[in-house]
């Protein structure tokens, strides 16, 4: 009983302190996918975690606003932004011309290359994929790359989430997967990916990852860019980078 009362008192104190202290009245709603480890994913307790989440949190801290994360499936993530379900997308989104028709992007916060992943014992040659089945996540630059560079005779399968694509690679339904090398790096390090490896060289498509905001939302865009420059200058970015990758990804 007394424990309960103490806990209640503590909660009340926190509420009072927060309420009376410098308030963060302004909130920034951030859309993210939550199925793209190690950038954004949902931990066993249901919390969003990952590099994107940490970056967004650091930016919010610099801008002195409160981050509210909204989880949204990938292929509806731009429509959700346009429908004002949230105000910015921090979800490892590549800056592409197509997307720039629909949204505005901040300065990049990391860069990315594509790379094929296949089973260690499989003979998959990225230069000769005839008769192979290649998986990629729908609505990603990997998917566009496969569509724009038809690998002769290769069949492309598109997945709702990257995780499902890995599941099908593991079950042998696809021979190889084309995906962001950083995402695949994380998967290959995990237990599920121990029988798989990168094949071929990284494909540099000049891919930069940015934060998307609605067109015309220039005020928010400028604030995000300023905050981004700040966290890069003061070393916060480097710290977060090191938490996930032993090499720089900016």
């Amino acid at each position: 009983m007394s424990l309960k009362t103490a806990a209640l008192a503590a909660v009340a104190a926190i509420v009072l302190l927060t309420a009376s202290g410098p308030t963060r009245a302004e909130t920034l709603r951030i859309g993210t996918e939550g199925a793209y480890p190690p950038f954004n994913q949902i931990d066993p307790s249901g919390e969003l975690i990952g590099f994107d989440i940490d970056i967004a949190q650091a930016l919010c801290d610099k801008m002195n606003v409160e981050c509210v994360f909204v989880r949204q499936d990938w292929d509806g993530i731009i429509p959700g932004l346009l429908a004002r379900k949230y105000d910015a997308i921090v979800a490892s989104m590549s800056i592409t011309e197509d997307r720039q028709q629909a949204v505005d992007f901040t300065d990049p916060y990391y860069s990315n290359k594509l790379r094929f992943v296949a089973a260690k014992n499989a003979k998959v040659d990225p230069d000769n994929l005839k008769g192979k089945v290649i998986g990629a996540q729908r609505a990603t630059i990997s998917a566009s790359y496969l569509e724009d560079h038809p690998f002769k005779g290769a069949k492309v399968k598109l997945y709702d989430t990257q995780e499902n694509a890995y599941l099908d690679l593991a079950s042998g339904r696809v021979d190889a997967i084309l995906a962001d090398r950083l995402v695949s790096y994380d998967w290959l390090e995990s237990d599920a990916g121990k029988n798989f490896a990168f094949v071929g060289e990284p494909i540099d498509i000049g891919d930069k990852i940015g934060i998307a905001v609605r067109k015309g939302d220039t005020k928010l865009l400028a604030r995000l860019n300023a905050a981004l420059a700040e966290i890069i200058a003061d070393g916060t970015y480097e710290e977060l980078n090191a938490k996930y990758f032993p090499f720089p990804i900016y």
Binding site: D75, G76, I78, P79, D98, R99, Q101, A102, R138, A139, A143, S144, L158
Partner: peptide, 10 residues
């Protein structure tokens, strides 16, 4: 859904 991924016209 695949067409929308390219056209952004849901």
């Amino acid at each position: 859904r695949t067409i929308i991924a390219r056209t952004y016209m849901p």
